[in-house]
Write a protein that binds this DNA or RNA. Structure first.
Lengths: 192, 192, 192, 192
DNA sequence: TATGAATGAGTATTCATTCAT
DNA sequence: GATGAATGAATACTCATTCAT
């Protein structure tokens, strides 16, 4: 239906994910989308609004990675699957990871737009909810779920931030193993 | 002595820290420095070299925060002082924290320049060295010091990355307390 | 129709012909054309492409001078008319003569672009064809037409190159007479 | 003695000969000469004066190629040696050939400076003198020596102008042979 | 909805040159 | 003689955006 708008959005996302914010230019997006630069303005007020939608798409993608974990049968499995899916997200979509967790442009967006702030809390709350039900189920000791969530998410973000900086091993197998050992260290005090 | 060069560097740093890479323009830097735009080229070959020096300064500042911890008398004290100083750094110089640990432009620099890669390993090695001597001293259980260092640094970076995103409490007191509780969670399994 | 593009082209040509490659600046062209400097980029990808078109125009103009000679009734008349038109070209359009036969920037263009190389061979081939038909008709002795063409064109280019250097008489009448006497010297051995 | 001045001049010449007028920049010359850009101004008033000296050097070099022909024992030999040396000049020093016979910048210089005008007449007069003595000696028919000189020099300049345009064969052997055949054509009517 | 033309502000960078030392 | 610092003007070019169609 509104296919041109979607095309623009997809091209903007692709270009952002490959060239970063510096390379996000209206004319280049238009070129990729096969339309004129001015046509973009029929669909988005300006560059800022377009970027806003790109960021939203990033959060949506992240959510799509996490939510399938809910299909698991026990709280423990849902929790572990969440950690697994979060790993898959960063390995599959490193630029989206960067976009929503790292980029300062996104942080400016977060500061200025409530809808994105809401989106960005999803991951935090998702972790917290998983941890809470693990505590109820007895897989994790009773503790402050929110603060454990902070630590888990911090470790997750920081870990892959170091990874994208090139300070951690680059092979997929090694980084996966190190990820799980790091998670283990976080959980060592709380797993029953 | 070399005051113009230093002035340029300071202005470039300030501008980068407030406006990001987007806003890092030779003209604007010159304007702030009270010189002509072309005068910059007497001191730096081009924008890239200038930015390179800004990043170097960031790492230097971070190091200046950490190293005083070495004056403490025991390994435990040096370790705890390091954690304390890292906290001070991020609270005093949040923009520098962002510059060296978060900004993706810096990561591109890291990827391309060996001297910066060396700098960036300092923090990692500093943590590792502190942890190792704590294990020797008996304050921490014998364990893989490098991997514990990865977790600590990851938690540190991720924690303040969430903080600058506005997802954690903004009051200085609250964030300090939360920081220490988060550290405690990390150490709970390894403290003797 | 395409009037802005043509205007730009005309202004670029005029400016090149009066100030040389040094003076061929996008800003100055735009100023003369009464548009903004950036508007040029709507019509030409960059300075190189614009200059390329200017050179092409030069060759086109030269061709327009030569071809009417083909209307003459005999090979001899077509040959003599060609020599006459070549004279007219250099006297009417000295800057275009310089552009296509003398300017080293044009030679760089020739080296890099096949279409211009093709254009530049036109004059050579045109001379050769005229000479060949004169040999068939019996006005010129049988000889190597290509090499005679080389000599004629060399003499033509060199002669007017000296002329523009100020080493030959500057009055139109004198130079015309000297031109024809020089041509006579070239042909003295080959005219039947 | 005045070695810095000579160094500057040599560097300016080299740079001009390799990069053309566009590449003739004061700072680049200074860099090559191992001095500061401002030091040039101790020796030359400005860029124009420096270029003027480079052009003078070009004429001087050309003269150095021609004059040894005077050592030959007969007028005919001196004439043929002149043609030979002119060939050597253009093959050895194509950039100098271009500088003094082709470049429009040089023509501007010629128009404005009498000393260069004088220099540039040397080649013309040298040819004329050789031809005159050949006529006296009986190797060439009595004729207008000046006009024959015009033709010879025109053919020479035009021939190598075509050569540097890439329209004539590029191999040294072929171009030499074609050169001599072209000379023969010029002389066919005047050689006794 | 879309386009082509155009714009003004902005980008980094190079240039010849001046000046105080 | 020579230097380092600095400058103002110029370079080609890119940008997001507007407007008439």
């Amino acid at each position: 239906m509104n296919s041109t708008k979607d095309t623009i959005l997809a091209c903007a996302r692709d270009q952002y994910l490959s060239d970063g914010y510096k390379g996000l230019s209206m004319r280049k997006i238009a070129q990729k989308a096969g339309i004129s630069a001015t046509a973009i303005y029929r669909h988005f007020a300006d560059k800022e609004e377009l970027f806003h939608h790109v960021v939203k798409k990033g959060f949506g993608t992240y959510t799509q990675y996490l939510t399938p974990a809910l299909k698991e049968s026990t709280a423990e499995k849902r929790f572990m699957k969440t950690l697994e899916n979060a790993l898959a997200f960063v390995l599959d979509q490193p630029k989206y990871f960067e976009l929503i967790f790292v980029k300062s442009e996104t942080k400016d967006e977060l500061a200025n737009f409530n809808d994105l702030r809401t989106d960005s809390k999803i991951s935090f709350n998702f972790y917290t909810a998983r941890i809470e039900e693990c505590m109820e189920e007895g897989f994790l000791k009773e503790d402050n779920a929110g603060e454990l969530s902070v630590l888990l998410l911090s470790a997750y973000i920081g870990f892959f931030s170091l990874y994208t900086s090139g300070l951690l091993p680059r092979s997929k197998k090694e980084i996966e193993q190190l990820y799980w050992r790091t998670i283990d260290r976080v959980l060592v005090g709380v797993v029953v």
